[in-house]
Each structure stands twice: as C-alpha cells, then as structure tokens.
Amino acid sequence: GVAKAIINLAVDGKAQNRSYERLSLLVDTVGPRLSGSRDLEKAIQIMYRSLLEDGLQHVHLEPVRVPHWERGEESLIMLEPRIHTMAVMGLGSSIGTPPNGITAPVLVVNSFEDLHKKALEALGKIVVYNQPFVSYQDTVKYRTRGAVQAAEVGAVAALVRSVTPLSIYSPHTGMQEYQENVPKIPAACITVEDAEMMARMASEGHQIIVHLKMGARNLPEADSFNTVAEIVGWKYPDEVVLVSGHLDSWDVGQGAMDDGAGAVISWEALSLIKDLGLRPKRTLRLVLWTAEEQGGIGSLQYFLLHKKNISKYSLVMESDLGTFLPIALQFTGSEEAKAIMKNIMCLLQPLNTTQLLDGGEGTDINYWIQAGVPGASLLDDLSKYFTFHHSQGDTMSVLNPKEMNVAAALWAVVAYVVADLEEMLPRD
C-alpha cells in the first residue's frame, strides 16, 4: 500500500536521513534566521531554489512585512554583594538601555502576585523574576508580560528567569510585549542559576546591585516572504491540504530544532510523495512561514490573503514542537473528522505511532483552526525540546536523523491520505 511505500522510502529507503541532511546544509550555511535579518532572507532564497530543483510545482514567494529587532551588545554584571558577570539575553522587541547602561538595586520576586505584594519596593529597581517552571504555557507569561508588570510598579528594567525545565547556565530568549500607556523598560532573560542565586541572596538580606547594558533596537519593518510549493491535485486541484513549519528563528544557536526541522520535514513530506510518483486528488501545499517567532506575522498575512478560499482547505498541518521521536498526531476538528483521522493513524502501525490526541494547534495554523478548518500538529518526545528552545543549544547536535525519518514519514502519510480521500474532512 501507499502508506507502507512512503514509510519504507523515508525510514529504510533512499530518502532515509534526507531531511536531516537538508537541514544541516541550510542551518550550517546560514545559521540562525531572525525576522528582518539578511540571514533569514538568504535562507528563504536557498529554500526557494531548492524547492525548484526538487521539481515541486508552483514554487513561489509571498511578500510579508516583518518586524526587525536587533539585539546589539549586551552585558549584565552583579556589583553587590560581589562582582559576578552574568549570562544575559535580551527579549524580542525589548528596548535597549541608555548607552551607559542601567545600574540599580534588584528586587527579586517569584510570581506576579509576589510582585504586587512588594509593589512599594519596586520603584527605581530592576525586577528579577525567579518564577518556578511549571510548564511552558503556564510559565511563559513571565517572559511576555514581565516588563509591563514591572514597569507598572515603577521598575526600571526586568530580568526574567529563562523559561526552561533544565539549565546548564543557558539563557533562553523569546518574544516579550509592551502595553500601551505603560512605560517601556528593557527586558532580558537570565539563567535559572543566577535567578535562584539572587533569590537566595535576597532572602538572606543582601542588597543586590547590578549593571545592565543592552544595545537592542527596534528598526523599521523589513521585507520578507512566506515560501510556497505544491504538488497539484489531479482531481480537486483547488482544494488544499496545507503542510507547514516556520523558517525564521531566534538569533541564537542555529534554529535547527525550532523550527528548521519542522520546515524541512514538511518539505520532505512533499518530496517523498513526489519521489514515489504519487499525486493526490487534492493539492498538497507546503508553506514555510516567515516571522513566526514575532507572533505569527507571515502566517497572519497568508491567512488574510487566502481566507477567501477557506472552504477549500481540508486540513492545515504545522510541525513546530520539534521532530524528535513522534508520540502522536494532535488534531482539532469535528467528531466525524476525528473518527476519520483515527483511521488514518492506523496506517502508521509500522512506525508504532498510531495515537491521535486532541489539541492540534500551532501559531501559524491557529488562524485557520479558529475559523473552523481541521488542524493537526506533530507531537513528539518533548523531554528535550524546552531545554534547548530559544537558546544557543538549538543546533543540529540536538537532532537525530532516524527520529526525523520517522517524523517525516508520519507527516507524509497523513498529508497524502487526507489529500487523496474522495471527500474533504468534515467540519462542525
């Protein structure tokens, strides 16, 4: 059968390790790909040429205006109670400090509630958040909202403990947001180790003074592109199964895991199908999003441009949680669609991954899912994901070619079968 042929080609056949090799070629050559950077545009051009060379159809770029934030030089030094140079990483969209930096005493808090209790002490201080890691979703609010909450009580900067379950003195960056009518203060992340140490120092009654310097700048929006390629359906060419990952990353590590690998297994899904000479009934469309990390900027542009055809989208798929050994496919859709997807997952028995779970989502496909289109995301072994996420550790060394083979095979079988069914997935 078709499913077995796809799996064999990806896992044991000529295509084994191809997605890993394609990814290493991209990220070793270009490195990280921050929104607005020349590196991201270079990556988009490389991918555009590669998709053409791969023989995919309708390869094209769709223009998007994207945020352009630059990190600049950064440093953080503890002056009291002892001299200690700390690892620091500015958060996306943060303003910089004045050229000479900010020297201020520290107020350590462990939650927003704790900050509000200590609000009267915050004026003129640098707030250090030492929030425990509960889960990414629960804890990331300290990164996104930490600066606003600190500024509201008069702080001059915010330092947020990195949102990670495990640290080997690694700062983890990510997006933060300002709020209208609240002063903008510099926001950066620090390591778990330094956040915990400052919490201990503060609880022992030491006064902590630090010097923070950040050269971050918010520049005018830049030109970028969503990268698109297709295998055009032979029977219902105007109907679409969308397969995707995002090509941009933060400016640290190589952006290999987040989300170069997701982008590459999505490409691989189309390559596997094409290599087998298969052509589904409806169109398989690969979209490599730009500026996901800045809040799904490229995917919003795509949604606004294409939503008029929303009734023609059978399924939207995004891989943005790593490409480690797959555990399940997460799916959001009607009960009828779920029953169909459960049947499709049975085809993945040779991969030993037949679970269909609720909660299919992704920053770039959520616009479609919220509008009623069935959506699917790859769930893999997440034990390592948030340890490397948005850090210098996000490199090829995290990835395993054999696990990527399995992820690509799963992705290709699901995309192909849904695209080849006689009918689109039913909606509520």
Partner: peptide
C-alpha cells in the same frame, strides 16, 4: 466555514474507513 460539498456527503464513516484501509 461550512463546506457545502460535505454537507451533502454521500459517504458514511464506515465507507470512509474502508477507503482509508485501502492505503495500507
């Protein structure tokens, strides 16, 4: 949001299951 084509679907879930099984 609605897909008109499906609302007049000719296929039952059982028929869909048979169709999917053919990809094994």
């Amino acid at each position: 949001k609605a897909i008109r084509r499906y609302s007049s679907s000719r296929k039952t879930i059982q028929e869909m299951e048979e169709e999917i099984a053919s990809y094994r």
